[in-house]
Design a protein around this nucleic acid. Sequence first.
DNA 1: TTAATCAGTACTAGTTTGGTGCTATATAAA
DNA 2: TTTATATAGCACCAAACTAGTACTGATTAA
Lengths: 167, 167
Amino acid sequence: MLRITRETDYGIILMSALAQADEASLSAALLARRCRLPVPMVGKTLKALAQAGLLISQRGAHGGYALARHPAEITVAEVVEALEGPIAITECSSAEPSGCVFLEHCQVNSHWNRINEIIRSTLGAISLKQMSQWPSSLRGADSPVTINPLSALLGEHSSVQPDPTRR
Amino acid sequence: MLRITRETDYGIILMSALAQADEASLSAALLARRCRLPVPMVGKTLKALAQAGLLISQRGAHGGYALARHPAEITVAEVVEALEGPIAITECSSAEPSGCVFLEHCQVNSHWNRINEIIRSTLGAISLKQMSQWPSSLRGADSPVTINPLSALLGEHSSVQPDPTRR
DNA sequence: TTAATCAGTACTAGTTTGGTGCTATATAAA
DNA sequence: TTTATATAGCACCAAACTAGTACTGATTAA
């Protein structure tokens, strides 16, 4: 648990595929084939990403989707927030009022806010360029974000590869 | 989004209440009253936490629940995992095989594993004792966990208190 | 024996997720 | 101008999950 939705998973995969594609723009159908993902969901996901301004769409023949910015300047946090809304680990971590009248004597709320901030900045410290490269090159310092808890761990953790299956 | 369930939220609040209670043991009904949470959900949540070994339950009159260990030695990660199962930000980050046959040429999977590890160790670096204290005392160094991305941010971020409502 | 209290299970309404289908609109090229 | 190719925008659906309720049984102190 504590999981991103499958659509967000798709979103990251698709954006990564665009980041490392030779072509400037790719159609939804081609992207689906290249990433081996179901076509309808790919269309839906790309639409949402375009609406959020992370992709630029071109209609009509020879149309398709292209990254709106350089992959080093798009963060994982942006993609997650485009597809799931603001990152909020609890109801009370979100920007909108949650309607809880007990906040004033809630001891754990501010701690969750801090935890939320760490998660947000962790995801904000990883660029699409990094996500689109194979693990060994993750150490490259092309992230645009300065606060970077990720860097504290990179290279110190033995990369855990738990199981040989996906989806 | 990217949210813990409300039951987990309750779980942390309840464990924190136990951590700072004068009594060694509290009944579900009393805890519910003290935390202003719905009684049935409190009972359900406490049962699950006891089953996971984080609480010790005592049946019968004058029974109730008590922390199984010292609050400084119980982490937020443990509570989350007790109520939601293993922390896995994607299907493929979990320990169980996900059945995805494309893992071998999935570029983003290993990156998610690293992100997952950061989130897990962030939650594993925060003790119940810390959660049960008011924000200013969070800086105290009583966490049993050595790898601590939290420490990189503590004291540097201005505490954001977004909205005055909860639940 | 009795009242208090946890254990276990089953159930339900509502929401979210994952996915499908259809129609409208835009565009390049024949 | 027509046609094939694409995206845009809905509306819809089944399955799963979440949050919460209800009830019965077991345990224990007084």
